[in-house]
């Protein structure tokens, strides 16, 4: 199974059709993400693939939340691909992982999004219900 996955992406757990865990690694020598592995959690709704899965980073002992201006410290990712508008049913776990990989690879800013603290403290919505405002076309 792993043989089919692109480098830097590993399947951790896919016991059921509700939740999958994937590990991703940034392949180039980006100093922000060097020697680190990040864990992604995919939660599929009943209407996947018509509806986007809920994709978040999870924090564990060995897996931090990557620093990125579009990733909140609670693991919520602001990426149009994962939003209702940007999602397309032709995407799959592999392509989402690769998109996130390249999103991290291309990043040079070692920072969290603006208002990270207050968002992390106050947000009670599920990631897919958070309405993001996509303004940055550089990622």
């Amino acid at each position: 199974m792993h043989a089919h996955l692109p480098p830097g992406i590993t399947l951790v757990q896919a016991d059921n059709l509700d939740t999958w865990l994937m590990d991703i690694r940034v392949l180039d020598d980006n100093p922000i993400y060097r020697n680190q592995t990040y864990r992604l959690k995919f939660v599929f709704s009943g209407s996947y693939p018509i509806e986007a899965p809920e994709v978040t980073f999870v924090k564990t002992e060995s897996h931090p939340i990557p620093m990125h201006p579009h990733i909140y410290s609670n693991g919520i990712i602001c990426l149009d691909l994962l939003d209702r508008q940007g999602w397309s049913p032709v995407h799959n776990v592999e392509s989402v992982c690769m998109s996130l990989q390249s999103m991290l690879t291309g990043n040079t800013k070692n920072e969290r999004p603006e208002g990270d603290e207050s968002f992390v403290r106050n947000n009670r919505l599920r990631p897919r219900d958070v309405s993001f405002y996509f303004h940055d076309n550089t990622v």
Partner: peptide, 26 residues
């Protein structure tokens, strides 16, 4: 090519006669 490849054929993983977990609600 790979019946259980992780390209996430959720439909495909279901591709046996049996309960269909993902019928469109409408």
């Amino acid at each position: 090519s790979a019946p259980n490849s992780p390209t996430l054929g959720l439909f495909r993983s279901d591709a046996r006669p049996g309960p269909l977990t993902i019928p469109p609600p409408n």
